Amino acid sequence: MAVPATFSRYAEQDAALRYLGEQFAAALPGLGRRGFAGSVHVGDSRIAVRVERAGDTVYALDIQRGGIGGDETVNFVVGRHDAGSACSNGWARPVYDLAAGAAVLELHDLSLLGRGTEPRSYRREELFAALWQRINTVLASTVS
């Protein structure tokens, strides 16, 4: 089996950004029950996820189109940084997994999830679940 001729890294990048934006928009309002205010701004080339408590930002994640891995990748920046700065806590490249017969995101985790530096493949749903779990772990440590 070969990679389908119609596979597009850019179409998969678009689908991943759209999916992640939708999932964060759906999940963040639930943080209010735990005493946090969550917001998400979904733009064409960047998703900005912010979690606040009493007006202070306790978690910030930017998900950007393109980055250090190339313009077809999805770049992740944790924390607040100057717009346009070349920071990265990890990046994912859309690839076609021949064994699964589907597109996946090959994540190069520099410090995004803390799961080591070896590239790992995630379906969009798995990547959102891992990001959401990481956010919840950080938020649990901010409540004292």
Rank of each mutant, 00 (worst) to 15 (best):
D97R: 07
G114K: 12
W132P: 00
A37L: 15
E52C: 12
T6C: 07
R65Y: 01
D44V: 13
V42Y: 06
R9V: 11
V78F: 02
L31M: 08
P94M: 05
E72M: 14
G55W: 12
P29Y: 06
R93D: 09
Q13A: 11
S85W: 11
V77H: 05
F36L: 07
H81M: 04
S144C: 03
A37Q: 14
G32I: 01
Q13R: 14
L17N: 02
V3P: 05
L61G: 02
L105P: 00
S141T: 15
A25V: 04
R123Y: 02
G32Q: 15
V95W: 00
G38F: 10
E52H: 09
Y59C: 07
S144F: 12
V104T: 07
A5H: 10
A5G: 12
S121V: 03
S144N: 06
T117G: 14
S121T: 11
L31Y: 07
A11S: 12
V104C: 00
S88Y: 02
S111Q: 07
A100C: 04
A15D: 06
Y96E: 08
V49S: 08
P29K: 08
R120W: 03
Q23S: 05
G114A: 07
L61N: 05
G114E: 10
R65G: 02
Y59A: 15
T57G: 06
A2N: 14
M1G: 13
R124Q: 15
P119R: 04
V143D: 09
L127A: 00
H81I: 01
A103E: 03
L31T: 03
V77F: 05
